Simulated assay, not measured.
Amino acid sequence: MELKVGDKIPNFTAKDTNGNDFNSQDLIGKKPLVIYFYPKDNTPGCTTQACSFRDQYEDFKDFGAEVIGISSDSVASHQKFTQQFKLPFILLSDSDKKIRTLFGVPSNLFGLLSGRVTYVADNTGTVIMIFDSMKAKNHIPKALDAIRGLQ
């Protein structure tokens, strides 16, 4: 089932960059969230996207929002990716693709590549924007505009 604008962000758990248990209930309904799914650490598009979120991270924080990146990469891969590019936000390992399935993120490129989708939720946990595009850099201004619109 695919999440749509107006739906609530589902509850999920995963391992974060440090191997700690992350529970979405700790954040959903407490602050605006930008949850972005991306195909793979250390690939050109995904690195561009992560670094763009990094460069605008303080703008998201200024609006009280948290950014969360999710891919099927391992915790070790996320640690390396975070350290290499000094990423200040949470990365979650979705190695079994359960979270991706829960959100209904489609696969691209004949199912070979995981899709790139950004979800923005308000502080009640309601999805207010979904942006599905393989153009990595376009996600950041769209998400920031949606967060800015909450003010």
Score class of each variant (00 low, 15 high):
Met129Leu: 11
Ile35Val: 07
Arg100Gly: 12
Tyr57Gly: 03
Pro88Met: 04
Ser95Lys: 06
Leu91Gln: 03
His78Glu: 10
Asp73Asn: 08
Lys97Trp: 05
Gly104Lys: 03
Asn20Leu: 02
Lys80Asn: 10
Ile28Pro: 01
Gly29Phe: 10
Arg54Ile: 08
Thr82Arg: 11
Cys46Gly: 12
Thr17Gln: 08
Leu109Tyr: 12
Lys31Ala: 13
Cys51Gly: 11
Tyr38Pro: 04
Tyr119Glu: 00
Leu109Val: 15
Gln84Arg: 14
Thr124Arg: 09
Leu102Phe: 08
Thr101Gln: 14
Leu33Glu: 00
Ile130Met: 10
Thr101Ala: 15
Thr48Gly: 08
Phe60Pro: 01
Asp21Met: 13
Glu66Gly: 04
Lys98Ala: 14
Gln84Leu: 11
Val75Ser: 06
Thr126Phe: 04
Ser71Glu: 05
Lys97His: 10
Thr118Ala: 07
Asn18Lys: 12
Gly19Trp: 09
Arg116Trp: 08
Leu92Trp: 00
Phe110Pro: 13
Gln83Tyr: 09
Asp55Cys: 13
Ser74Thr: 12
Gln83Arg: 15
His78Pro: 08
Thr124Gln: 11
Asp55Ala: 12
Thr17Cys: 06
Gly19Gln: 08
Lys80Met: 11
Thr126Asp: 08
Thr118Ile: 04
Asp73Glu: 07
Ser74Cys: 06
Ile70Tyr: 01
Ile130Tyr: 06
Ile99Pro: 02
Val105Ala: 00
Asp122Val: 03
Lys61Gln: 14
Phe63Cys: 01
Thr101Gly: 14
Leu91Met: 13
Thr82Trp: 05
Thr124His: 12
Val105Lys: 00
Val105Ser: 00
Leu109Met: 15
Phe53Pro: 01
Glu58Phe: 06
Val127Leu: 02
Ala121Met: 05
Gly19His: 03
Ile35Glu: 00
Lys61Val: 13
Pro39Gln: 04
Phe22Asp: 06
Lys30Pro: 06
Asp26His: 10
Ser74Asn: 05
Phe53Ala: 05
Phe103Ala: 01
Ser24Gln: 03
Lys31Gln: 15
Leu33His: 02
Asp94Ile: 03
Ser107Ile: 12
Leu33Ile: 04
Asn18Met: 13
Val117Lys: 00
Lys30Asp: 04
Asp62Cys: 01
Leu113Met: 11
Tyr119His: 02
Asp122Pro: 06
Thr82Cys: 10
Lys31His: 14
Ala121Asp: 04
Met129Asp: 06
Asp41Arg: 04
Gly69Phe: 02
Ala76Asp: 09
Cys46Ile: 07
Asp94Leu: 07
Lys97Ile: 10
Asp96Pro: 07
Gly111Asn: 09
Phe110Ala: 15
Ala121Tyr: 03
Pro32Tyr: 03
Gly69Arg: 03
Asn23Ala: 05
Glu58His: 09
Gln83Val: 12
Phe85Asp: 14
Asp59Phe: 05
Asn108Trp: 12
Glu58Asp: 14
Glu66Tyr: 09
Leu92Gly: 00
Pro106Asn: 13
Pro88Lys: 08
Cys51Tyr: 13
Arg116Asn: 10
Asn108Tyr: 07
Ser93Ala: 15
Gly45Gln: 07
Pro88Gly: 03
Pro32Cys: 07
Ala50Thr: 09
Ser72Asn: 12
Val75Leu: 09
Leu109Cys: 11
Ser72Gly: 15
Asp73Arg: 06
Phe89Pro: 06
Phe53Arg: 03
Thr82Tyr: 07
Gln79Asn: 08
Ser77Arg: 04
Asp55Trp: 14
Asp26Val: 09
Phe85Cys: 11
Arg100Ser: 15
Asn18His: 12
Asn23Phe: 04
Pro88Ile: 04
Ile28Val: 13
